[in-house]
Each structure stands twice: as C-alpha cells, then as structure tokens.
Design a protein around this nucleic acid. Structure first.
Length: 205
DNA sequence: ATACCGATTAACT
DNA sequence: GTTAATCGGTATA
C-alpha cells in the first residue's frame, strides 16, 4: 500500500521518522525498478532545529520545498558528491523533514550494484545516506517531486512489523555544528541491522 | 566576483 | 585510527 498524504502531514516528525522504519522506499524510472526496507532515519525539525537547513525559517531556493505540505522529496548535494534524500513532513510552511540514512536492499539488486559500480552485495551498498541514494538512482533533480503518485520515487507499507523493542533512538550523525541540538534523540534505527550506517553518534552531554 | 564549508564516503595507516 | 576528494549553496562585497 502506497503511504498516503495523511502519513506525512502529521505534526510529530520524530514519530514519522520512527514509523518509517520497516517501510519500503521504491524508485521506478521507466523499467528501472529498485527498492529497499528503511532501517535508519533522522528527524529534522525546521525553524527550531540548529541542525536543519531551515533553522530560523531560512528560505532559499534549495530549502523552499521543505515549506510545502508533507509528502515531497527534498534532495540536496553534500560535500560536492553525495545526494542526500529526505522526506518533507508536517503541514504547509512548517519545514520539517526526515533524512533516510540506511536501507536494506529488497528488489532490483543487480541494478543497484550496477549504479554503485560494485559486484558484491554487502552493507556498504546501501548503509549511509549518500550510498543509498546512489543505489536507488536518486539525485538532486528529484528534489521537489511528490512521493504520493506511485511514480519515480515513493514509499510503500508492505506490512513489515518492526517491534518497538528493536528500535534504538540516539543523537544524529555529522551535525556537531548544531551545538546542543546535535545530541537530541532524533535518530532512529533497527537494532542489529547490518544496513544501518556506521557514523559516530553524538552523545548527550 | 569571491570565499567558505558541508545531514559523507572510501581509501588510507 | 586519519584524511583527501569535490562542487553546489550560501553569504559577503
């Protein structure tokens, strides 16, 4: 079942990030079909969150899509190389988003391997926000696209159940510049899943 | 026009 | 454990 607008447009972005675990992220570009189970996410809470590109309600051409109602892709280039895929959440003019940090490959694995120029199925194929975008063929040109039409990029609920006991919550990765906000418990991942990224979490002080 | 830097990764020691 | 790669976005002038 395709996730509906009502899933993304709720106000609790941390809850959305948590509930995205176990959902299936799909890209379908013509005949090219690839998918993976979401195993790691991070919430970014807009105006009030120093780690967010929309901190202080900053509006630029890049961040504008986050001000749309939930259910669109926000994709940006990081370190000049990596395309990072986010899901816009909350309502209009509230620029929240969820970063997808890890997926477990499900369908179209040969195509993912080809996109990653790899021949071996191993966690480095899709563990990490930059590499999973490459495996799924997601690039900055997709920023702003809707996830609600079941075309190009979308998310399905296939009934995979992730027990609460298997979900771990920590501080976020790579946002040391955000001061105290870096340690907020906004990162969610599935315990012991090999496709969770290997970055260092920032511990609360 | 110019300068700085990052929600990372892979390849090193 | 460390660090080079790499370039669009953003701020400043």
């Amino acid at each position: 079942m395709l996730l509906p607008a009502s899933f993304y447009r709720r106000e609790n972005t941390c809850l959305i990030a948590k509930e995205l675990l176990g959902k299936v992220l799909v890209t379908r570009f013509g005949q090219e079909y690839t998918s993976g189970i979401i195993v790691e996410t991070e919430a970014y809470r807009g105006a009030q969150d120093r780690a967010s590109h929309a901190y202080g309600n900053k509006r630029t051409a890049r961040t504008e899509v986050m001000y749309a109602p939930g259910g669109r892709a926000y994709v940006y280039l990081c370190y000049g190389i990596h395309h990072l895929f986010n899901i816009v959440t909350h309502g209009k003019d509230v620029p929240h988003a969820v970063l997808i940090r890890g997926i477990e490959p499900l369908e179209g694995i040969p195509l993912m391997l080809k996109r990653r120029r790899s021949s071996l199925l191993r966690p480095s194929l899709t563990a990490g926000p930059g590499v999973l975008s490459e495996a799924l063929g997601i690039r900055t040109i997709h920023s702003g696209q809707t996830l609600l039409h079941g075309k190009d990029i979308y998310i399905e609920d296939t009934g995979i159940l992730v027990p609460d006991k298997e979900i771990i919550c920590t501080g976020r990765i790579g946002v040391a510049y955000a001061g105290d906000d870096a340690a907020l418990p906004y990162r969610f991942f599935i315990r012991s899943n090999p496709y969770v990224s290997k970055g260092k979490t920032i511990l609360p002080s």
